[in-house]
């Protein structure tokens, strides 16, 4: 469906050339949701913009449906672009147009008559769930609603591919989920191939079938999402995987935890390399008057300085609990009572 063969992209800047992508090879199959993850500056936007030729490759070949876009004339390219929808981090809607007029924009560009446009727009409004918002201006919409307009607009000319450039990065977690659900829905309903880039692993985990990890302009790991999750090979991939398997640096938001465990006392212990894990664990469980269970535990790997963080739930007398906390912090452990 989409194939990159030995693609290289170099930007010429005032301070000399900047290599954004190096010898990139990639294949996206029809009907899949393909995720590309990488840190800021890895070249993600460059990669996705090469697909619809918003950026020209310095070297190499990029084919969409077997056609190499960079060999087309300007006119042919415009026609091909209509088959590739795109949504953006900052939505890029026309603020001077209503929701309806924004969605009709690509149809207007294609010269569709007014009546046909109206029908198609009504369909799309239903698809993305914006009923009743037709005549609203973008400035009066929430971020999630704006992205729905963006999606409807991108789908208007019935593309075969949808490119998503950090489409959920400006949204809160809940809205992100609803947009991701919508993407899955249109992927199933319309058989649309989706390429999305992100720096958030949970986006990949939630909806992608395959993933490529991009680091400094190169794909360092690629495969089915579950394989990459179960057996991340590169350090950078492990870092991304950790984003979802654990909360960043052992941080479970207090409120979330209190909701998850409505009764019992909660405490968190953090300790580094200098502390004996064995001693800590044995003291955690040696108090006969407390019933202790581990709620969550996290051990950073050696290369990050071996930090451990454990959250436990304890049942028992408040004085015993306090004493027990004290006995553990004696070992050089940072102890924090989440609920006493």
């Amino acid at each position: 469906m989409i194939r990159f063969t030995d693609v290289k992209k170099v930007y010429q800047t005032g301070n000399g050339p900047v290599q954004a992508l190096a010898d990139l090879n990639l294949e996206v199959r029809r009907g899949e949701i393909f995720g590309i993850i990488g840190y800021s500056g890895a070249g993600k936007s460059t990669l996705i913009r090469l697909i619809n030729l918003l950026e020209k490759p310095t070297e190499g070949r990029i084919e969409v449906e077997g056609r190499a876009l960079n060999t087309l004339s300007e006119k042919e390219l415009r026609l091909e672009r209509k088959k590739i929808g795109m949504i953006f981090q900052h939505f890029n809607l026309l603020w001077s147009r209503t929701v309806e007029e924004n969605i009709a924009f690509p149809l207007e560009l294609a010269g569709l008559p007014r009546k046909k446009r109206k029908e198609r727009v009504a369909e799309l409004i239903r698809l993305v769930g914006l009923n009743g918002r037709e005549h609203t201006y973008p400035s009066q919409l929430s971020g999630g609603q704006k992205q729905r307009v963006g999606i409807a607009r991108a789908l208007a000319s019935r593309p075969q591919v949808l490119l998503c450039d950090e489409a959920t990065s400006a949204l809160d977690p809940k809205t992100t989920d609803s947009i991701l659900n919508l993407l899955v829905e249109i992927n199933r309903k319309l058989g649309l191939t989706i390429v999305l880039i992100t720096h958030e692993m949970h986006v990949i985990k939630k909806i992608c079938t395959r993933v490529a990890v991009l680091d400094k302009g190169m794909i360092v790991e690629e495969g089915k999402v579950e394989d990459v999750f179960n057996e991340p090979k590169q350090l950078i991939t492990r870092e991304f995987v950790r984003q979802v398997t654990q909360h960043p640096s052992g941080e479970i938001p207090g409120e979330e935890l209190i909701n998850a465990y409505p009764d019992g006392r909660l405490a968190k212990f953090v300790f580094g390399r200098g502390v004996s894990q064995q001693q800590v664990i044995s003291r955690l469980f040696s108090n006969q008057r407390l019933s202790v269970t581990i709620v969550s535990g996290m051990f950073e790997p050696e290369e990050n300085g071996a930090q451990a963080s454990i959250i436990v739930r304890a049942e028992g007398d408040p004085d015993v609990f306090r004493e027990w906390i004290g006995s553990i912090s004696e070992l050089g452990v940072k102890a924090e009572v989440i609920r006493s």
Partner: peptide, 25 residues
Amino acid sequence: KGVIEAAQAMGATRAQIVWKVLLPE
């Protein structure tokens, strides 16, 4: 700039960008 780019990604001609994007916006 993002809006202009979005129009280009939708296959707008330069004249369409002037009349339908730049002037109204």
